[in-house]
Design a protein around this nucleic acid. Structure first.
Length: 315
DNA sequence: TCCGTGCCACGTCATTGATG
DNA sequence: CATCAATGACGTGGCACGGA
């Protein structure tokens, strides 16, 4: 039985050039599935199965690994990208071919009722959530990360770590915020000035001012002339911003650069999240395939039994 | 040991669809 | 309409594995 199921799935998967290793995933997912199967006729089941398979094929053939499948490269009729005259045409054709699918969030919602998919724990959400929980008080982000890797003073840096949100009501004496690789604390939360929180490399030495906490990240402004103190790692979503350096043109360029870095960083995170959701979605589809195959098999056997019974009675 | 191959994860770009 | 999140496409590097 198990072998049969696996071979079925393998056939399906082979048909759609799937590279996911199936056997274990399916037997595991069958066991995990707790959803009671609704009563369906074999034809309904087949229709369901077909739908699931088609969806899975659509997903798998459309991407998983662009490098391995290379759809855009093998689709007939796609123009030569070297030719600028056909770029629009090519783009349009490509768009037609690679018609956009609904987001995995939506698909998940469709698959599992109105519930949202597994909540993703992110720094941004933590910031948002905790900020929401501190009504009236302006939250400040305290960098609690350790391990520093760069020595120069970049205009924009993004670094892994964690953020601890505290409210303005809490004590603001020197709190270690970041440490270098040897464990030396290089940043402190120091004091409040004009409604802003000041961070220092050492107590008494201003380094970074927090200017914004949002659900997309925390931005710190480094006072002009103090960029030499910028070193260390900050949490994801935290951007060190150095305004007022050089002339206006340079500032604009820096703004553009910072915006770009911010956009790239967000997109990086979004891509990770998207891949995670995609994997989850594919697993979900595999589960459904396994469940529906089980149902199908059970009902076919049931039908066979009833047929036999009916034949014996009529004889 | 080296090399080719497949798989996977990642970063980036281009594009789309939703939203304010 | 501008902005932004989501996602497909593509290129790249790392790793495992099998064969020469």
């Amino acid at each position: 039985m198990e072998i049969e199921e696996q071979s079925n799935v393998t056939e399906i998967e082979n048909g759609s050039a799937v590279t996911v290793q199936q056997g274990q995933a399916l037997s595991q997912s069958s066991a995990q599935t707790s959803m009671p199967p609704p009563m369906q006729t074999p034809s309904v089941i087949q229709a369901n199965q077909q739908s699931v398979i088609q969806t899975a094929q659509s997903i798998h053939s459309s991407s998983i690994q662009g490098q391995q499948i290379g759809l855009a490269q093998t689709v007939p009729g796609v123009a030569d990208p070297e030719d600028p005259g056909v770029l629009d045409e090519e783009s349009k054709k490509r768009r037609d071919i690679l018609s956009r699918r609904p987001s995995y969030r939506k698909i998940f919602n469709d698959l599992s009722g109105s519930e949202s998919p597994t909540k993703v724990e992110t720094i941004s959400e933590d910031i948002q959530g905790q900020s929401d929980g501190t009504e009236g008080n302006s939250p400040i982000a305290v960098i609690t990360t350790s391990a520093l890797t760069y020595q120069q003073a970049p205009q924009t840096v993004t670094i892994p770590g964690t953020i601890q949100i505290v409210t303005s009501g809490e004590a603001l004496q020197a709190v270690p915020m970041a440490q270098n690789s040897s464990g030396t604390v290089v940043q402190y939360q120091q004091q409040q000035q004009d409604g802003q929180y000041i961070y220092t490399t050492n107590p008494g030495e201003v380094q970074v001012q927090q200017v914004q906490v949002s659900n997309t990240g925390t931005m710190y402004t480094i006072p002009a002339g103090q960029q030499q103190f910028i070193r260390g790692q900050l949490p994801p979503g935290v951007v060190l911003n150095s305004p007022g350096i050089g002339g206006n043109g340079q500032q604009i360029a820096e703004d553009a650069s910072r915006k770009r870095e911010m956009r790239l960083m967000k997109n990086r995170e979004a891509a990770k999240e998207c891949r995670r959701k995609k994997k989850e979605y594919v697993k979900c589809l595999e589960n459904r395939v396994a469940v529906l195959e089980n149902q199908n098999k059970t009902l076919i056997e049931e039908l066979k039994t009833l047929k036999d019974l009916y034949c014996h009675k009529s004889e």
